[in-house]
């Protein structure tokens, strides 16, 4: 089993379109994990059927039991997040501001404050139109992606891949450089960096690569929209060479991405195009790279 994690640092580089196309090409031979839970979109392209759902809990908020509360104000005094307010002569918690630090509940003299775990989202197992199994999640309002949620998505996906003896685990990684992306990279055989030929694309590629490098994961890169800016493309190529990152493909600016997306199709299904050929070649190239890994 080979695990390929696709990341980009910045949004809008086409990461999910590539990931979904690879998933479509590999059919039932791959398991898919969508760890981009802030903007979980892969299910739209792969027509996930949401066959299994589970509540996902994370973090806690303080809840004041108004019957037992003596309104002494100790909780309000210790709260550093301005989350406790008095309305109609009663102390109340604003759940959006509450950090879940437990301080108020620890100092309450009558033990009238409970810490309640919150449902922050849903966790799903699906079958996709490509015939593959997919693990994904959806976060609710004000919920923050976390290493914990990503770890759950990846863990379940890995179990499925091993149990059903599939060849590939394709992971759409989290954005940014924080805890979630670290969690999505953990255990990967190959990190595929999707960047674009823009100044911000290069800037964010460098930032996220620092992280990948610290994990000693073999890296490959796709430069999307390479023809937008020849100078930046050159700079990216120089960076890849310097860091020994395999350049898988340079893909031209192409509105097929959005057109296919609008019909909820992967590039592969959308019909013959240069882009389709390019993506098929890229996937073959990536598979060859993984074969050479130990």
């Amino acid at each position: 089993m080979k695990e390929i994690v696709i990341i980009s640092g910045k949004g809008g580089t086409g990461k999910t379109s590539f990931a979904a196309s690879f998933a479509y090409l590999e059919k039932e031979n791959a398991v898919i994990a969508d760890c981009d839970v802030d903007a979980a979109n892969m299910h739209l392209l792969l027509d996930a059927d949401f066959r299994y759902q589970e509540d996902f809990y994370s973090g806690e908020v303080a809840v004041i039991d108004e019957e037992n509360c003596v309104n002494c104000g100790d909780c309000k005094e210790v709260c550093r997040f301005d989350a406790i307010h008095v309305t109609d002569d009663q102390h109340r918690v604003d759940p959006i501001s509450c950090e879940g630090c437990w301080y108020c509940s620890r100092v309450c003299p009558v033990e009238a404050i409970d810490m309640k775990t919150q449902k922050v989202g849903d966790f799903y197992l699906s079958m996709t139109k490509a015939g593959s199994e997919m693990v994904h999640a959806k976060l609710g309002f004000a919920a923050e992606n976390s290493g914990k949620l990503v770890a759950k998505v990846k863990n379940e996906a890995k179990k499925l891949t091993l149990a059903n003896k599939k060849e590939f685990l394709i992971v759409d990684g989290s954005p940014g450089v924080g805890c979630p992306v670290i969690s999505s990279l953990s255990g990967a055989d190959l990190a595929l960096l999707v960047t674009e030929a823009t100044v911000s694309g290069l800037h964010d590629l460098k930032r996220v690569y620092r992280l990948v490098k610290s994990f000693n994961i073999k890296s490959a890169c796709i430069i999307n929209k390479y023809d937008l800016n020849a100078d930046v493309t050159k700079e990216i190529e120089a960076f890849l060479e310097e860091e020994n990152i395999i350049l898988v493909a340079k893909v031209a600016y192409d509105e097929t991405f959005s057109k296919a997306l609008s019909q909820a199709k992967t590039i592969i299904e959308y019909g013959d195009s240069n882009l389709k050929t390019e993506i098929e070649k890229s996937w073959q190239h990536i598979k060859n790279i993984t074969k050479e890994l130990k």
Binding site: D38, A39, N41, L139, A143, N145, S258, S262
Partner: peptide
């Protein structure tokens, strides 16, 4: 980007919020 605490912090005190989107199923979602 996103809808988590940093966005809330950045929006709360404002008079108005402009949401930028693009006309695709991803954008709509």
């Amino acid at each position: 980007p996103g809808t988590s605490c940093p966005v809330i912090e950045a929006s709360r005190g404002s008079d108005f919020v402009i949401l930028v989107t693009e006309p695709t199923p991803f954008g709509l979602n």
